[in-house]
Design a protein around this nucleic acid. Structure first.
Lengths: 337, 337
DNA sequence: ATGATTGATACGAACGTTCGCCCGAACGTT
DNA sequence: AACGTTCGGGCGAACGTTCGTATCAATCAT
């Protein structure tokens, strides 16, 4: 058994002062003579004293914990974002004396959020995968529980968020393609009920319009983001009559882009030369595909840092510098488009 | 501001008993008359009382937190394991009233472990990426701090661990290849100082021996696990004189397998037909490669569950059912091998 | 010389639990 | 009638902090 950790009282006994004085010395610069201060510091070092976090939190009525939950990735897909996002949040939190408390939000949702906050296990939340009418946002707002969302929700709800400027990502992609001479550019995007999907679709529409290019209804798909959907959509696009057939395909994620690429190969079309394909996410390994995938990378680590920074401001009663942060993604040009 | 949460005293006042009695009713089956018991339960429900976790932990001198740290993935690689591992641990922990506390182990290492434990922020640790002479294992062992390792270390160190039976994975791969008629099988494995690498290399050696096949020194590479290493090793293998040239290549991870596959293509060899390539990990997306990658999948979720289960047993003074758990991986056969 | 101010430290209280002991009443046994 | 047991519940204490205030001496201005 490890010897019991020394407490304030042990240090105080050693230094010959009251334990509250030790506390004061350790926390803020108390009015204490230099000599006793030194005696206390020596005692602390000699005993290897560490403040007990449990007791401190109890007293402060704060857990210094940030709740975070993410969607379990469907089978066969990868959450390549998690590592970066989590690491950046953990780092930022730790620098401010906080820790992250990850929890599974397994469907039932709200109950878990309520439990964690009501029992004092967390002081606030970072939300991800936020969408329209998000019940978590509604609940937390209603109960005045501090949180920051990674992703936007209903425009008329007022809360702190960080998001990637998906519209700008699509703008970059469209401009890049136009610059290479493409004029018929198709979009495979998330379904209509997706906030992210609408944001990106809008970016696409605006960029096309700005370039003076028409958008045919047949060019726009709004579907889930799996391989099969990409494959089928690409087949359908290539089946259009020549004058309507697009020469470039924008997809909503890399998995789908891979589906589209396979569809092109199956039609004896060479992706990147005959038809451009651009993904979204810059998943690892996509640089090694044939052809290497042009895709849009999101500044995930920065988003994580920002979320935590804003949340801590909020929880500590400071006014966050910005209420809404929109981060620009980056087009990574490779051979596919 | 949300109204202050009700405490035991509030409930007690409502029910007309002492607050300690409420505590007893809520925790273990106290000796209390059915009527008062019901009164208390009613009061709890009426006030929406939730026990304060901070106070409970303080009193119990336990944080009910499990520290977990992982290596930040190098750029361009993916930690596809993290999501599964984390999720399974979090679930298992939560079911037993624990939570996970993730922290960055940024190099300096030990100091962080010491801090977290000494300040009572965590009751124990789950370690991953364990290797020979792991200083964390040494430290935790020496200080009698509860932990479970995901991965083995020095054979003479006595501690609880969960690991994937990498040797068995290689055995499966070799037997599969032998069954398909391969007799010249090469191995690209982790460097000599890698516990995981040696385990797998041994599995390869034994399986080759069991099949009555020789292993030429030129066939065995012990290198880091990136794309370039796979590419170069495959080139070198193909440059061997025909009678020594392997017909199958086992790699240490999927990224490297992809490198090998690209090397084969560059030599106008068709992976899967001319030379078999088998990866390790079953990363997402590798099923979509050309050719789809045959690879070895690890039961990560089960490993996560086991780690937490064993750790909780340890922390609560129970004797874990098993001290060492070795989980069998699974060969996923696709077109590359 | 007197009262007011400051510096250095001590002290009591509280955060919300859980744990162990105590005590009165009711009951049954000899 | 005296005694031991069980039941139902109360009470004090403690976990290790931090915060606000009290205390005492020394210093300062008037």
């Amino acid at each position: 058994m490890p010897a019991k950790s020394p407490t304030l009282k042990d240090v105080a006994a050693q230094a010959g002062v009251s334990y509250q004085t030790v506390s004061k010395v350790l926390n803020r610069q108390a009015q204490v003579s230099p000599e006793t201060r030194q005696r206390i510091l020596d005692a602390v070092a000699a005993l290897g004293y560490r403040p007990n976090a449990l007791a401190r939190n109890m007293r402060k009525q704060r857990s210094f914990m940030i709740g975070y939950s993410w969607e379990q990735t469907p089978l066969g897909q990868v959450n390549h974002i998690l590592d970066q996002f989590l690491t950046s949040m953990v780092r930022e939190a730790e620098a401010a004396g906080y820790h992250l408390l990850p929890f599974p939000s397994h469907g039932q949702g709200l109950q878990v959020y309520e439990d964690l906050f009501e029992t004092g296990k967390v002081d606030g939340f970072v939300l991800s995968s936020v969408n329209y009418n998000d019940e978590r946002v509604r609940y937390l707002l209603e109960h005045h529980i501090p949180f920051v969302a990674f992703g936007r929700s209903n425009p008329d709800w007022k809360f702190l968020y960080v998001d990637i400027d998906g519209a700008d990502g699509l703008r970059q992609a469209v401009e890049h393609l136009v610059g290479r001479g493409h004029r018929k550019i198709a979009l495979i995007g998330w379904p209509q009920d997706s906030r992210v999907g609408n944001d990106r679709a809008e970016g696409y529409m605006k960029a096309m319009q700005a370039a003076g290019l028409p958008v045919l209804p047949e060019w726009v798909f709004r579907v889930p983001g799996d391989y099969e959907q990409g494959y089928q959509a690409a087949l359908a696009l290539m089946a259009l009559p020549p004058e309507k057939r697009p020469t470039a395909i924008l997809t909503l994620n890399d998995t789908q882009a891979i589906g589209a690429i396979q569809a092109l190969w199956s039609l004896n079309l060479q992706p990147g030369r005959d038809v451009a394909v651009i993904g979204f996410d810059d998943a690892p390994l996509v640089q090694f595909l044939d052809p290497p995938l042009t895709t849009i990378r999101q500044p995930i680590a920065e988003a994580g840092r920002k979320c935590v920074e804003m949340l801590i401001d909020l929880m500590e009663g400071r006014v966050p510098a910005e209420e809404h942060v929109l981060l620009k993604p980056l087009l990574i040009v490779r051979a596919s488009g």
